[in-house]
Amino acid sequence: MNRFSVHIHGWLLLLPAAVLLVLFTHYPVVATLYHSFFSTPRGSVPPVWVGLENYRQMIDDPVFWQALTNNLWFAVGTIPLSIALALLMAIWVNGKIQGRSFLRLAYFTPTVLPMIAVANIWLFFYTPQYGLLEQITGFLGWPSHNWLGSRDTALACLIAVAVWKEAGFFMIFYLAALQQIPPNLNEAGAIEGAGRWYFFRRITFPLLMPTTLFVLVNAVINAFRLIDHVVVMTRGGPDNTTSLLLYYVYEVGFKYWDSAYAAALTMVLLLGLALLAIAQFAFFERRTHYQ
């Protein structure tokens, strides 16, 4: 009886969180999966079972493939760069330098700013003719360039914004992890004659592995669910060169109102992310030392 009531207690305590989780996470996933097997209802035409038709359509959809390719490039451009920058900045502001609280704050600011505000600031940098970037290149005597309007540079511009925003956020995690490493280790290394780079390679970096893994999983997820910047800065243009997966899902769902196809796209995106996260954990788990 006693044990039984303990169980009841436990479940009751879990209930609110579980309800929210089921209502807003699990149920929508299942519902989306369900809808992805039906056709999109149009006017008085009810949805009919179409099986994998929506998924087959994806294979023949060049815009989907372009969004996927764009997104992969976006990931390749943002993830290593933002993590490396985060680590560098963390090591720097963890040192004994003057005004380090100010530096920490400065690096963290991009994270505090709302996405839309960030996008707007950068929109100004990139503006043709009188944007900040144009003024600088103009001053240097370089030819004028429409950064966001050109097929060659639009995606790179988005990558720059994302790196700028993510690096400060990841830095906080690295900074926290660095402060967990006892300063004695550094001193022991110094007495043994380990140089900075050697010590970083053999001690600091391995000890930061749990953080790197965490940051990496977050970076991957963020890279594949970015949409705000695209909406504000390029709307996927020019010629879909900056259309990322989530933005494409949004377009299909809320511009073309093809909700069934959007559901199928969403499922593919979710599945991809889940596989990536599992692969990362499986790969790094063995190489990671948790304290």
């Binding site: 004695n184 022991a188 391995p206």
Partner: peptide, 8 residues
């Protein structure tokens, strides 16, 4: 505190 490297 010994300052051993915990992952080695």
């Amino acid at each position: 505190s010994y300052a051993l490297f915990p992952h080695l």
